[in-house]
Structures are given as C-alpha cells and as structure tokens.
Computed example of a mutant assay.
Amino acid sequence: MKPNGTVTEVFLTFLRLGLTSFGGPIAHIGYFRDAFVLRHRWLKDENFADLLALCQFLPGPASSQMGLALGWLRAGPLGAVAAFVGFTLPSAVALVLFAFAATHLSAPYSAGALAGLKLVAVAIVAQAVLGMSRSLCPDRDRATIAVLAAGILATLPAPYAMPIAILTGAIAGWALLRGDAQKTSPLPLNIPRPVALICLGLFGILLIGLPILAGISPSLSLFDSFYRAGALVFGGGHVVLPLLESELVPNLIPHDSFLAGYGAAQAVPGPLFTFAAYLGAGVGGWSGAAVALVAIFLPGFLLLIGVLPFWAALRCHGWAQSAMQGANAAVVGILGAALYDPLFTTAIRHMQDFALALFCFTLLIAWRSPPWIVVLTGLVGGVLLTL
C-alpha cells in the first residue's frame, strides 16, 4: 500500500491523540481504531487487527508501535517519526516539568504528595495485575507459569531474573500450550526485507553491545539501562516498572521519587513509557529525558520494522503463538512480584496508607474513575495524612 498522506497531517493527528488519549494502552487502541479505521479510514479493520496482533506479540509499547506503523502507512518513514513525536511529546513534556517541580515543593507538602503518588502506583499496578491475570492466565497452566516467574524473581539476582523469567515462560508455553494456526491477511505495509534485516541486526547489536560499552564509557549507562528495559517489556507499559526499578533504583533514582513519578505518569495522556522522561530528567535534566525516551522506545521500533515483512509467515505457526502465551503469563508473575516489592513494601507504612491505596483501587475497579481523578485523590490524601 503506497503512502498517500503528508507528514504534517500525521503529526497533527497524533498530536491530538497525544493530548487526549487517557486511560493506558488498551484505551489507546480504542482511540486509534476510532480515528484511523472509522473516521479517517486510513486502513481497513482487518489490517488494523493484524497490526495490533503483531504489536502485542512483540516486546515494547504496543500503542506506540501501532502509532509508528500507522504513521509509516500514511506518510512513509517520516510519517512514522511524526506519529511518534506527536503522540509522545505532550506526556513527556508534562512529566519532565513534574520532575523539576517535585524538587521545589516545600515540606510537608512534598513528602505528602510523593507518598500519595506512591499509593496511587500501588492501586494502578494492582488493577493491572488483576486485569492481565484474567486475560493472560485464564487456565491452570498459565497461572502456574505466572507463579513460576514470580518465584524466579524472588530467587535470582535482579540483572538476570527478568529475562530468565520471560524465557522460561516462553519455553513452558511452547511445551504445555497448544496454539492453533491462525489465518492471516496481507499487511498494509511494504518494508523491504534488507531494511528489516538491518533493523533486527541493529536491535541485537545494541542489546549485546551496549552493556559492554557502558562498562567502558559510563556516559552510555543511562542509554543502556533504558534500552534494555524497552527490549524486554512484554505485556504492556506497566511491566516497565520492575524492569526500570531493577536498573535505576537506588543508584540513580531514590525509591520514593521513582514510585512518585510512576504515579504521576497515570495522570497524563499518551504512552506510559514516557515515564522514562521523568526518570531521565531526574538524572540529567532535559538531555537526560531525551536520551531516556529515545532509548526506551528504540528497541520496540527496531523489532517492529524488522519483523513486519516476516510476520504473516510466523503467525501461521502454532508453536510461536504458544511460546508467546507462556511469555505473557510470565509477565503477569513479574508484575505481581513488583506489586509486592518495591511497591507495597515501600509505599505502605501503616494502616492509613493501606486504606488510601485501597480507596484508590476501588475508584479504579468499582467506580471506573479516570486515572487523573485517582491521581488527584492520592495527592490530596497523601498530603492530608502527613499534616
């Protein structure tokens, strides 16, 4: 399918979505379908579903990968860049400004606000664990894989536990689960195979080479940490929490600031991965935020471009679907482990904290309140608890 739009059109369309798309990656997919299938008619529903299946199959931020693919579809490679910038910029700028403002709040308001945002993070991740367990662990085999992954995180040291848990989940899924081949429809993107192979090669070179280079040149350590986190995130943006926590806390970011920023990230529209901008700003200001953003999004984008020409053939194999089901189940266990440590162990100090976190969780689950209302509730509640 030949691109038939302009870069400016793509940027403005995604900027509007970046300013209004509250609710996380699942909600983003709904916004995208409404905008690009129903209203703008950039592609058909079956093509949209096929791209969505690919983005959910790969590690990385699914909604941002969808945006990149849709931008490329509409206006070529520059359209992909425009889609990324438009969708990401509003929340990234907001979180960088929050990182700067948080350091200037006076006590006890600063301590109370940070404590409240940590409790919001507990509620948000608890909601994610509950929702993901229902969809990704619906049977005893996948539930067992999730528990096994949590056990791996509790047993092995942080740098190795995460990839080993995901790999173990994929192997267990391949061995225990039976995936049926699915019919595939032609993808609407024509990316040359040489370009795809270059992207796959670059993904692997950076994943292996950056830790080595960071050991030689510490200036690359920030890029390395965020790149590895982005390369291993299966199952949605919330899973980036334990990955980044193991990389950055407490050497570069204090626990309290880390969890407070994660809570604040729930109040802004756009991709949850822009949490990286907050963390990067805390380490190196605006330049640190830019490095963190590029690094965390880059691996998912390289994989997407690299796999697109081969996706239809890969999806036909039941073993690939089974392995991904196992990896996704392991992700639930990883996120469940993160809900306990570092979230619960550092945010819940007494019964009043637990009550406020439970109230925020109830707002999300029972009242279905927008995330920004839950964040505001946590902020006000946290300040009141410290007075």
Rank of each mutant, 00 (worst) to 15 (best):
194 P>S: 04
211 P>W: 09
199 C>F: 07
101 A>F: 07
118 K>H: 10
131 G>V: 11
105 L>T: 01
180 D>N: 13
128 A>C: 10
110 S>K: 14
158 A>K: 14
185 S>L: 09
195 V>Y: 04
185 S>D: 10
125 V>Q: 04
151 G>W: 00
148 L>M: 02
102 A>T: 11
205 I>M: 14
172 A>Y: 03
202 L>G: 02
202 L>I: 15
98 F>A: 14
115 A>E: 12
205 I>L: 14
179 G>K: 06
135 S>R: 14
100 F>W: 06
183 K>W: 11
186 P>S: 10
177 L>G: 01
186 P>T: 08
180 D>E: 15
208 I>K: 14
153 L>P: 00
135 S>I: 13
185 S>M: 09
170 A>W: 00
207 L>K: 09
196 A>E: 07
110 S>L: 09
152 I>C: 04
194 P>N: 03
114 L>V: 09
165 A>N: 04
174 W>D: 00
116 G>E: 00
209 G>N: 07
192 P>F: 12
151 G>E: 00
197 L>V: 10
99 A>L: 08
108 P>H: 09
190 N>W: 12
172 A>C: 15
150 A>L: 08
198 I>G: 05
136 L>D: 05
190 N>M: 13
165 A>W: 03
137 C>D: 11
200 L>R: 12
108 P>F: 04
153 L>K: 01
192 P>K: 12
